[in-house]
Each structure stands twice: as C-alpha cells, then as structure tokens.
Write a protein that binds this DNA or RNA. Structure first.
Lengths: 385, 385
DNA sequence: CGATTATGCTCGTGAGGCGAACATAATTGA
DNA sequence: TCAATTATGTTCGCCTCACGAGCATAATCG
C-alpha cells in the first residue's frame, strides 16, 4: 500500500498496469490496493490516455485533489519562501518575503504566521512541514549560519504547528534530495550534490536518501582541508575548501577585500569574467581548478555515479567547464579516469532546496505512521465500547 | 522471521522473551517463529541461565550447531587467511598461508582450493563467501592493489564455488563493518572507520551498513587532497592524504628513501619513536598531526557519532594520542568542538577485515533469498504434480 | 465482426502476525 | 510449606494482505 502510494508520488502520471508491473504486484492486489487508497481519499482514478495498443485500456492513477499536502519553507540569504506540495510533487508557491535587516526571531515569527495560515487554509490536509535553511544544521537546530548571521536557533521548534512533524535540513542537502529524486540525478544509486553559495555544501544520496550524518550536520564538504593549510576559516579550522571556491576566493585572488556578501560578489566576478575581463577570468579559472580538484577527491572517497552542481558551482561550471573538468580528472585516481562520474548542472537551480524540503516532509507522510494518522483523520476511530 | 534470525545472529546469547521485547513481537508470534526456525535447523532452544527473578523462566535461543556457515577470506600483504563463521558470529580460523613471491593467479588458486575443501567439509551448510582484499575494489574486481602488486583481477569470479554468492570488499571497509556491528562502534547510527596500512582506507557506516559507493570503490579517503598539492601520488592524483600519514610519510620526514614495504617501515619507525629516538618521535608527531587534521575534516563532512582507528592509525593514536587529538580538534568546525565524536581504537585490530567479510557474507544468507534457498536445501521441494 | 490481447474484477487460498485465554514454572511471603 | 504473584510459553480464533486462477471487459487487428 505504501509502496503504491510512494510510486504515485514519484511517478505522478502512472497507471494501474504500470503499478502492478513496476512493483511486482498481481493485478488482483493492484485492484485492491488502489481501491483502498481511493477510499482513503489519497488517489483518484481516471481514464488513461489512449495508447493505441491492443487490449483493455488501463486506468490512470493520480493524486486525489483533496489529498495530503506538505508545507515547504526555504530560508536563504535575503528572503524566505513558502510553498505547498502535493502528492506527485506538484508545487504551489505561496509566499516570498525579503527579510533584510530582520533578526532570527522576527523572521521565524513571520514564517510561523504564514505556516499557521496555511494550516488554516488546508486544514488537516496539511500533514508535515519541511524547512531548508542556509547554514549548518544539527538535530532540530540551526547551529550557525554565516549567510543569515544566525547562531544556535531551534528552528524546528519555532516553526512547529500543532501536531505536524517538522523536518529541518541544510539547503544544500535539501537541494541534493530534489536532484536525486526528481532532478538531474534521478535513478542514480549514489549521487553527490555540490552547491556553492557562501562556501560549499553538499550531500551524498543513496537511492534518494540523504546521508546526513548522526546529527544532520553532514555534507559540510567545504570544511574539508583541501586548501592552504595556513588560511584560517571563520568556522575555526584552517585550510577549508570553502575559502578556495566561493566569492571570498574570487575576491582574494583579485586582490579585493573580503566581500560582505560572497554570493553576490561571486556572481559579479563571474559576470565580468563572462564579459571578457581578463583578471576576473583568471580568478575564475583558478577557482574552477580548485573546485574540480576537490570534486575529484570527493569522488575518490565517495564513489558516486554522478555529480550534480548548483549555485555558484553551476555558474563556474558553465563559464569554465574545461578547467573544472581538467582539474577534476587529474584529481581522480587513475583507474576512475576512463569512465569518471559525469559532472552535471542541477535541474532545479532556483528552488531545489524548497523541493527537497517538500520531499523530506513527504517522507513522514508516506510512512506507516503518516498513513495511520491520515486514516484516523479521514475516518475518526469509533468510540471504544 | 528474518528479523528474529538476524537478532539471533547479532545477539547470540538471546532468549525468547528478549526477542519478543526487542522486536516488538507478541509472545504468540515469538513461539511460532522460533518453532519455524527450529524446524529449519537454524536455531536451537535450551534452558536459559536462571536469572533469580520471578516468573516462568524464558528459553535461550542459540544458533543450531548444524546451521548455515559462511567462509571469510582476507588477502593481505604477506598472507591470506580463511575462516568459517557461524550464525552469531562465532569464528573458526581454518587456514593461514604466506604468499610472498606468488602472483595473483597462484594465490587465488590456493585460496580457491581451500574454499573447495571447505565446501566439501561443510557441504550445503556453507552458504556464502566473503572476501576482503587489501586494495581498491570496483564491483567484483580488485582494480589495483599497491600492497599486493595486483591489478584488475576479477577476484570474485576466481573464488566462486558452485552456486555460492561471493561478496568482495576492501579490507578497510570490511574492518569497518566488523567494528560497527560487533566492535568499538556497535550501536552507533553513523560511524567512521579509518585504517592505515599502505595509505589510508576507511568507510562510513550507517547502522552497520557500509556506504561503499556506486561500484564498491568508496572509502578511499587516502585520496582526498589533504596533502601537499604538488606531491604526486602513485594513484595518479596529487596531494593525496595517503602520502602524509603512512610509512612513506614517516620515511620522507626522516629523509629516508621511499620504503618498499610501507606498513613494516611504519611499524619500525613507530617502534623507534616509542623507544625514545627523537627523529622518529618528531616524524611520528608530524604524521599524527596530519592524521588528526584529516580526520577533523572528515568529521566535518560526514558527521559520524564515533571514529574508530585501526592499523597504523591505531598505533599512531597509541603513541601520539595528544597530537592526533589536538590536530583533530583544531580541524573541526568550532561548533563541533564542545562534544566531538570520540576517536577510539578498533576492537578487532587483527582480524577485523576477516570478521567484516563474514558479516557481509551473512547478509546474503540472512535475506529473503538466502532463507528460501536454505529451505529448499533442507527440505527439497516435492516434485510438482 | 470475430479473434486477439491487455487489463480489470471477484473470490478462494494461504501466510503471517495479533492478542485473549489458558498453562506452566519460577520466586515471594505468610 | 504452600498459596499468591509474576513472567513466560502455548494454543487458537481472528484479521490483514497479497496471490493467482478464472472470468469479464474494452481496446486493436485482420
């Protein structure tokens, strides 16, 4: 039953026949399970597109249009976004607000209000909340965010709405989830996602599941010491890769002072490089090599099938793909070079983390417990006795 | 049923009552399942140790002494070993042979013979073969082994015995599995194992499952570019961590020529350092810092609960623990420092990879398919019709 | 317009776990 | 010493769920 519902979520345009084939179910079981899901208001059946082949036409199985939804929140440098996602991954963007100059408390209050509004609007259809934040996550807390200037905030607790589970994750992790499940790394057994905003984040995904470590703080690849061992990093360590590949690196190579907003600074330098500015171009090439070399090391260590790039990493790859690739290949162990995992631009450069947050929130809905609670909400348990 | 059998495997001294409690089974189900497992010759029941508490005494559930076994092979620098493991993890070392001067073909022939002998001795009780090799693994092949001097050998194919599945893995991966399931990292949700023999190997384990990447070649942490970016590595890349922490690093720091046998060279230097030789001590301290710094970076990136060390890494940690720890802590992101994952000596310094190979081989036995095939071997299917 | 084909539906079957009622074997305590 | 207490084992009716055979249905093919 769960398998079927998950399949509908991942393949929204599916049919009864496909469900039976892909999940190895007998046609009888498919009938029964889909009937149960329909009774629960989770899926609907409609006539399928005519295929022109022989045989009785199968029926399309789609999400019920009053089925469960999740809220997804993405808090990034200058703004936060709220969306609602349906079974099948369909998205409704609900809200986008700038938060320049606001503190963590204020921002979280605004978001919390918006979530409560969503709860009011969708009622019990709203089942879970996924939150992506730009910063280091540990458990339910945002430990530190250079981007936001927040420190040690219990984001999940602040955004809790009544009984709904809240799933918190780093933005790069979330974006990686979206790529692995519906984006450029769909179907890859092991995928590596690399995102540069301020510093480098990322995540390893096994069959779409993020390896987030014991506290959810995994994927901080930017704090691997790939760089100059003497250069201090704001994180407290030295030689972090972070400092060699983002806007700070570009500024340093150009002899500029450290930028206040490394992401925008990076975009500016890359734009100049694209327009032919030779100094900017040289800085870009250097950073491209640093990026490629680091990715090579990570591929050696993690053995992914594919590497997806987003944020500044994608821009660098667009503008200096050859330099990235060359450094990447020479950073690989020799035996990997004849068939290296491809470097691919992310499929969701804009809203990957929002989509990933929705996916992880849906994981709690598409679970034994989530289904049970949906059942009791749809058809409240009769009074015992 | 599988859950129960796995529980018996992981907790060999268990009881009926404990099974029901730990797996959330009703007593009725426990009765039925254990009866089925007994009928299949997989477990036996005996009187349990008297506990002195009230109530009817529970019954001990142990492996059947004619139950399934797996063969575990470990091919390391100078020798190979063959052991047989039982449900519950009990070990019988069967064979230890030196293979100095022999080529891959010859060594594999000898091992294959020994495996066939084991098959003859144990008959259908032998269900699977786990093989640990010192070198880089990809799929069923050993891609390259500096230690053994082998290149691109299909080890799994060479060691196949009749219908038995063969599981191949890198020695550090296998040792990590043993640590995570029965050793120093037992119970950790995420564990990082670091082994130094020639270069650095390792593995991340999530709930005892090894993250081996898309081809099984993961865990080559030694080829992350933590080192001098200009120093070429035999792997083809530059700046590999490998070159900063093993016997080659110690020799280089001491001004000695590159050792032919880095593992023994490392042991020799460490011995001298332990005896007070100041040059050896200085080299040790340097390597200890390189090790600690790299582990710090890996902990940043992978967020394990615990780090286990084996091989030369364990020796370095014994002799220069403070240097390792200091470099480790200063390589950590600041927020991790107040409660960093502990660095622990491996529980199985001698035979971790052999044990891990047995564990992974047992994974194929303690599976739906493995159980089915055991069923047909115990009680052959009646002729249809 | 019947033959062919793929799919949907119904229903008997069997596996497997639950939990209530009862049986059993230990300790406790009067 | 022996009944009460307690934890566990055993039996059995029940429920859920998927299977798969046999039949029904709706399309294309010839």
């Amino acid at each position: 039953m769960l398998d079927v519902l998950r399949h509908v979520h991942l393949h929204p345009e599916t049919t009864r026949a496909e469900l039976a084939r892909d999940l190895g179910l007998s046609r009888g079981s498919a009938t029964e399970i889909v009937a149960r899901l329909r009774a629960l208001g989770l899926v609907e059946e409609t006539a399928a597109e005519p295929t022109g082949t022989r045989g009785r036409p199968t029926r399309a199985v789609r999400r019920h249009d009053r089925g469960p939804v999740v809220a997804a929140v993405d808090v990034s440098y200058e703004s936060w976004r709220l969306a609602v996602a349906h079974v099948g991954g369909e998205f409704e963007h609900l809200r986008l607000e700038r938060h320049r100059g606001q503190g963590a408390e204020e921002v979280l209050s605004r978001i919390s209000e918006a979530l409560h509004e969503a709860r009011t609007a969708f009622g019990t259809r709203l089942r879970a909340i996924g939150v992506s934040v730009s910063g280091t996550v540990s458990g339910s807390r945002l430990v530190e965010s250079a981007t936001l200037g927040w420190r040690d905030v219990d984001v999940a607790a602040r955004l809790r709405v009544a009984p709904l589970p809240v799933v918190l994750g780093n933005d790069a992790t979330m974006a990686g989830v979206a790529e692995a499940r519906r984006g450029a790394a769909t179907g890859a057994d092991v995928a590596l996602h690399i995102a540069i905003e301020v510093g480098v984040g990322g995540v390893v995904l096994e069959h779409g599941r993020a390896a987030v470590g014991s506290t959810g703080g995994g994927g901080e690849f930017g704090h691997l010491p790939f760089g100059d061992p003497d250069r201090p990093c704001p994180c407290g360590a030295r030689g972090c890769w972070d400092l060699e590949v983002d806007g700070r690196a570009l500024a340093r190579i150009l002899g500029d002072p450290p930028p206040a907003a490394p992401r925008s600074a990076a975009d500016a330098v890359l734009r100049r490089a694209g327009e032919g500015d030779p100094a900017a171009r040289a800085a870009l090439e250097q950073v491209a090599r640093n990026l490629g070399r680091g990715i090579g090391g990570l591929v050696n260590a993690l053995d992914p099938r594919i590497v997806t790039l987003s944020g500044v990493a994608a821009s660098i790859f667009d503008l200096a793909g050859d330099s990235v690739r060359t450094a990447y290949r020479s950073g690989l162990m020799r035996f990997r070079r004849h068939d290296p995992p491809p470097l691919i631009r992310a499929a969701f450069p804009q809203d990957g983390s929002l989509r990933g947050a929705a996916e992880l929130a849906f994981d709690t809905v598409l679970s034994e417990a989530g289904l049970d609670s949906w059942r009791t909400d749809v058809r409240p348990a009769p009074e015992p006795g």
